[in-house]
Design a protein around this nucleic acid. Structure first.
Length: 488
DNA sequence: TTTTGAGTTGTTCGA
DNA sequence: GTCGAACAACTCAAA
């Protein structure tokens, strides 16, 4: 019997993008299924996305998530190769270096990514390398949910009905026991050298105290939510003062956990079926809807979906914009939210609606500007969800909001933070105000303010706009735009 | 084809 | 304090 040394089997590139997990990852499964050596790679491309390159908070998260993914891959006997540069240059180059015959990656749905993926595919094909893309991040890919006439949905409820009728999403699959390694590893950047973490100043201390990026952190969040949050989710989901929401958004954004893993865990809980379960599943479907809209309306991140809003009389007011960003509007619930965002990279969803409505309707500032701030400061900044939600609040989204829906910051505060605990936590200069005064300190009796150590205009600002006047102004602006006919 | 019912999350006013 | 009604007109999805 002759012993021949066979030529080494050409490897496959396993390209991680927004699916930074090894468990339950169809891209990983597809790579393993080839039976070839697997070279895991992550490419940091801050050029192709243009204005939608990850913001500061996202980069903080990404650093830790990549560190976690590296450890996970090492536990499977593998590595994570880090490269920097344009996708359509870095991946073909690495494929050539390693003589890979196949690149496997998850689908991306961002407009810029569709363009660069097309380029990548073309370049790879010229060298005879196949580019296989799979779904690792959505319950239903955007093109699979269609109306009766084959079109795209633009109203949530029928979209959601179609999703629930589409049948269950795939079931979770465990991580492989190990990944086959190549005979030679390509070179890799050093994560720390990317300098994704803030320094001078280090603004991330609140982030570190709040989050554990990575697959394990995601599983822990899910377990905690199933254990403590889900049962009363329907009642508590709108309460920023009780910390019972899932907080899975940043984990989902980087694909550290799959939405179908969450879907089945929630449906499989002893609590199903219940209004809370249904309500939580709908939040997952809202994420799907945002991707559906982004896929079919790629201009969504920058252009209003309702064309007449292009002529909305937005103001330019850097001072007001700055007061909003810094949490110094004089409306406690707004300021609490903006400071929670600044310090932890996250804001409770109810409060997101309140601060966004305030920005757009009370201040008449363009939603794109608020969207950009969220993009930079949210650890869960997701192009689809962020742009769809800002358009929804602005009323320029496909899913028309009643023109008269203008959140009243005081009323919302009293309704959803009834004891004022959320405000107390994030706006400490108001901490000693009683619940009855904390959402509208300017109307508190002078004695109450004095006893709480609050000196309006000094320790905490007066409201930068009057609610009633701002409401009337916004209604007038909205009415003008909606009556204005749009001629092609 | 035309028609019909409905549309995440709200606020205010007056009885 | 509570409750119900009113608040544009429009577009979408489906029958």
């Amino acid at each position: 019997m002759t012993v021949r040394s066979a030529a080494p089997l050409p490897p496959v590139l396993l390209w991680f993008r927004q699916d930074l997990r090894v468990a339950d990852n169809p891209a990983v499964q597809a790579a393993v299924a080839t039976g070839r050596p697997v070279i895991p790679v992550f490419v940091l491309d801050c050029e192709s996305p243009g204005p939608w390159a990850p913001g500061g908070a996202s980069l903080w998260w990404l650093h830790h998530s990549l560190a976690s993914l590296t450890r996970r891959l090492e536990s499977l006997g593998s590595r994570l190769i880090l490269r920097r540069g344009r996708f359509d240059e870095a991946i073909p180059r690495l494929a050539a270096e390693t003589e890979a015959v196949l690149v496997v990656a998850s689908h991306l749905y961002e407009p810029w990514a569709r363009e660069v993926d097309r380029q990548t595919e073309e370049t790879l094909a010229r060298s005879g390398v196949e580019f296989l893309r799979v779904n690792s991040t959505l319950l239903f890919e955007p093109w699979t949910i269609r109306t009766r006439t084959g079109g795209a949905y633009s109203v949530y409820t029928p979209f959601a009905r179609a999703c629930f009728a589409a049948g269950p999403p795939p079931s979770p699959v465990p991580a492989p026991a190990r990944l086959a390694t190549p005979t030679r590893w390509p070179t890799s950047d050093v994560l720390a050298a990317w300098r994704l973490l803030p320094h001078a100043p280090d603004w991330a201390s609140g982030f570190r105290a709040t989050w554990t990026p990575g697959e394990e952190g995601a599983e822990a969040r899910l377990a905690r939510f199933l254990d403590r949050g889900l049962a009363r989710y329907a009642e508590t989901r709108n309460r920023p003062d009780v910390d019972l929401t899932s907080r899975l958004s940043p984990h989902l954004r980087w694909g550290e956990i799959s939405p179908w893993r969450v879907w089945h865990a929630v449906l499989g809980s002893a609590l199903a079926p219940s209004p809370s379960v249904e309500s939580f599943l709908n939040e997952l479907v809202w994420r799907e809807f945002a991707y559906h809209l982004l896929w079919h309306r790629p201009e969504m991140p920058s252009e209003p979906l309702r064309p007449q809003f292009a002529r909305f009389p937005w103001r330019n007011d850097p001072q007001a914009s700055r007061a909003w960003r810094k949490g110094r509007t004089g409306y406690p619930i707004v300021d609490a939210g903006m400071r929670q965002l600044w310090q932890t990279g996250w804001m409770h969803n109810r409060v997101r609606m309140i601060v966004a409505s305030f920005f757009v309707k009370h201040l008449l500032l363009p939603w794109q500007e608020g969207e950009a701030w969220f993009w930079d400061t949210l650890v869960d900044a997701d192009l689809a969800s962020n742009s769809a939600s800002w358009q929804w609040v602005a009323g320029s989204g496909a899913d028309a909001a009643p023109y008269f829906r203008i959140f009243a910051p005081v009323g919302q505060g009293e309704k959803f933070d009834p004891n004022g605990d959320y405000v107390r936590r994030w706006v400490p200069e108001l901490a000693r105000l009683p619940a009855g005064s904390i959402h509208a300190p300017w109307s508190a009796p002078p004695l109450v303010l004095a006893e709480a150590g609050v000196a309006l205009g000094r320790t905490y600002p007066f409201p930068i706009v009057d609610h009633a006047a701002a409401r009337v102004r916004a209604l007038a602006a909205l009415a003008a735009v909606s009556r204005e006919r749009v001629y092609p």
